[in-house]
Structure formats: C-alpha cells, structure tokens
Amino acid sequence: MIGRALRQARALLSVRYAEMLEYRAELVLWMLAGSMPLILMGVWMKVAATRPLGLEPVDFARYFLVLFLVRQATVVWVIWEFQEKVLTGALSQRLLQPIDPVWNEVAKHVAERFARLPFVVVLVALFFALYPDARWVPHPWALLSGLLLTIAAFAVRFAIQYTLSMMAFWTERAGSLQSVWFHLYVLFSGMLAPLSMYPESVRTFAELTPFPYLVYVPVAATLDHPAFPVDVPRACAVMAAWGVAFVVLNRVLWRRGLRQYSGMGA
C-alpha cells in the first residue's frame, strides 16, 4: 500500500519535473510575474527613510525579499488548469484512472518548485550583489521554522485554491472567483506592508482569516525580528485547522461537483 503510493509519487514527480524543465523560459517569466514584493520593497524603503517607523530601510529590504521567496515557494495555479480541464472535458481522461486527479496537480506544483529553484537562487544572489547591506544570516531555528511554515502555507493555499476550483463544476469561470480571492489575499496577507504596520482593527480582522498565515507568518518566522512578532506553535495549530477545514469542504464539493459534471455530459 505504502510501497504503491511511493512508486506512484516517484513516477508522477519525476515525469512532471521533466515536463517543467521543458518550460524553462516560462519559469523565469513566472518568477518575474511574482516581482510585486520587489516593487513594494522600494516604496517602503523610501517610507522608512522619510519618517520614523522604528524600522530601517534594510529591515524592509529583508522583509520583502523573504516575502518574495515565500511567494515563489507557495505559488498555486491549480484553479486555472482545473477549470480548463472541466470546460474542455479533459477531466474525463483523468477520471478514468484509478487515482484521484488531485495527485497529478500536486505533483506538478511540487515539481515546479524544484525546477524554479535555480532561477530564484540566481535572482537572490543578484539582489545581494546589488544591495550588500541587506545581507544577513538568519538564525538556524528561525530558518527551519520559516521553511516549515512556508511548506504548510503552500499546503493550505493549495487546499483553498483547489476548493475554489470546484466551483468550475457550476460556474463556467471559477477563475474570476480566484481573482476576487486574490485581492483579499493581497489585502490581508501582509503583502502590501508588514502586518504590524496595519491599523489595529484591520490586523485583528485579518488574523481571523487564513490570509496572514499564507504570507506574513512564514516571513516573520524566518526574520525573527522583534518588530514582526509571531507565535509559531499557535500558527501551526491554526494552519492545521484551516487545512483540515478546506480539505473536508473540498471533498464534499468534489463529490457533488462530479455528479454535476456527469450531469452536464462529462
């Protein structure tokens, strides 16, 4: 049973990795398409230089650099592929296989991380060469917890987006739903600015949503800076809860969606 799962995982990952390597040029573009944090980094470095915030420009440089990395590691696009598969009927091919279609998508995402990694490393090296002041060595524990929280953030984000993808069974373009969701993600995740800069009321509200856990929490854990407080064990518990909630919701919608899909003619 486990041996079978391992064998399937290995085959899926290695083939999907080979596929992603065929998209080398695209990987660079996808990486650059995620360069919003580097733009906002400029704004906040200028703000920090203009008025006292209790943070130096270099703190913002590090915050947005780590944010950039976390975003690179947690990119999810499953909704676009899933929607395409439902609309064109290509999902039928996957349904005929004795394995849940989600594993193909998971494998693509994981393989893509590894294919993208070299380009990200080059970009970061370039950044530190251009801006040596921003160099620092994070504490090993901070780095480890940041890495674990990033992986968790990816898992939760995937679970959420795959759940939204299920809407493709009912509306013809679940993609717009994702666009709305993305605005909320930008607004509440700490992408615009460190969450600690947000007004108290907005921050309290944001913490009730899954968004800060997808970006701000892994970033803050990696930086381990007094200005960016984070309670790692609690964050893990909250993320696990969000993850489980969305997986359950996902399975319910999946089952209903399949009935709907087959009703439309598969």
Binding site: E22, Y23, A25, E26, L29, W30, L32, A33, S35
Partner: peptide, 8 residues
C-alpha cells in the same frame, strides 16, 4: 510556449 510574458 510563452503564456505568461504579458503577465510579467
């Protein structure tokens, strides 16, 4: 194969 060039 470049889908995302306009996305950049």
């Amino acid at each position: 194969k470049i889908y995302n060039v306009t996305q950049v």
